[in-house]
């Protein structure tokens, strides 16, 4: 749990209490705002309540929809995705776009992707994707995902683009996983990443998104990326780096130097806090609590020297 401490250098970041509160199950999405190059997230619920300081540039992170999942932890994952999308429509500040950090589907079935796409389209927002391991289960081991979401991407679906002076990088760390290992980026992708950021000035705010956490959250459950450190080393010279991940179905944050890490809630089902259960499998909670533990995140970039603002929003308060 050392990872969750406030950094000693006084840099912006969540305090311990804040982090622990964030770790409570809640939320459907994270609203992210970039303030002075640093992103901050806030729950969607809080973002809806606040609504006073409109950020000039906001995007939204949604994750782990697991469309097709119908087990006890949430028999209607499609329904909760729909609820999340309705929440997004209510935001006072319309996000510029959506980032989906993977596990769009549960079993990579065409029908699951179709259903997810249909609902996500209702946001009317451009959407950028990276795959989760659940999106690469077709017989072609990811061909279906690439056919649908991979336009303009490289390799297994990695991509980069620029918006409002921010450089966005989507990485894929769920391909070619090695026995006994964690998430994996691989040499080709790391080479590409090095070239991708080579021409950028160190003052360019960078937002990296990938499915499995790029930092080691809990290796006993595979919650980390084997060569994630090499990617982060390539980004260390930048003044503001925000790393957005999914996979673990709960909010965990950490700040390390100029790099802020944040994982988003799922819209489908919660998973237990690291080590708090026999396995990371779907966590069954009382029906009335489920929507407090699902959510999205909204991120906004605001002028000045503050960090990106991230607002995590649960499906229900």
């Amino acid at each position: 749990m050392n990872d969750l401490r406030q950094p000693d250098d006084g840099s912006p970041g969540p305090d311990r209490r804040g982090v622990l509160e964030c770790m409570a199950w809640a939320g459907t999405g994270l609203l992210w705002s970039l303030g002075g190059g640093l992103p901050r997230a806030m729950g969607l619920e809080k973002a809806l309540a606040a609504g006073t300081e409109p950020a000039p540039f906001t995007f939204l992170q949604i994750s782990d929809s697991h469309v097709g999942f119908d087990k006890a932890a949430n028999p209607d994952a499609l329904g909760t995705l729909r609820e999340a999308v309705r929440k997004i429509a209510l935001l006072p500040e319309k996000p510029a776009f959506l980032i989906h950090t993977g596990d769009i589907s549960h079993l990579s079935k065409e029908r699951e992707f179709d259903d997810a796409d249909q609902i996500l389209r209702e946001t009317g927002l451009p959407t950028f994707f990276v795959p989760g391991e659940h999106d690469l289960l077709d017989n072609g081991q990811g061909r279906a995902y690439l056919g649908r979401y991979g336009k303009g991407s490289r390799g297994a679906g990695w991509t980069s683009f620029d918006r409002n002076g921010v450089h966005f990088i989507g990485l894929v760390n769920v391909v070619d996983l090695k026995a006994g290992g964690l998430g994996n980026l691989g040499e080709d992708q790391l080479d590409w990443l090095e070239r991708d950021v080579a021409g950028l000035s160190a003052s360019t705010p960078v937002v990296v998104f990938a499915h499995i956490p790029l930092w080691t959250v809990y290796p006993e459950w595979g919650w980390g990326t084997q060569d994630g450190g090499r990617a982060l080393a390539l980004l260390r010279r930048f003044g503001s780096v925000t790393v957005l991940n999914g996979h673990i179905h709960q909010i965990i944050q950490k700040v390390e130097g100029h790099i802020a890490f944040h994982t988003a809630r799922s819209t489908a089902f919660p998973q237990p806090a690291p080590g708090s259960a026999p396995s990371p499998g779907p966590m069954k909670v009382p029906a009335g609590d489920l929507r407090k533990l699902l959510g999205v995140a909204s991120v906004s970039l605001v002028g000045g020297a503050g960090p990106l603002a991230i607002i995590d929003t649960p499906l229900a308060g």
Partner: peptide, 12 residues
């Protein structure tokens, strides 16, 4: 014959 879960490679 070692094996693993390709989705959750920590499972061996």
């Amino acid at each position: 014959y070692p094996y693993f879960c390709s989705l959750h490679p920590h499972m061996t």
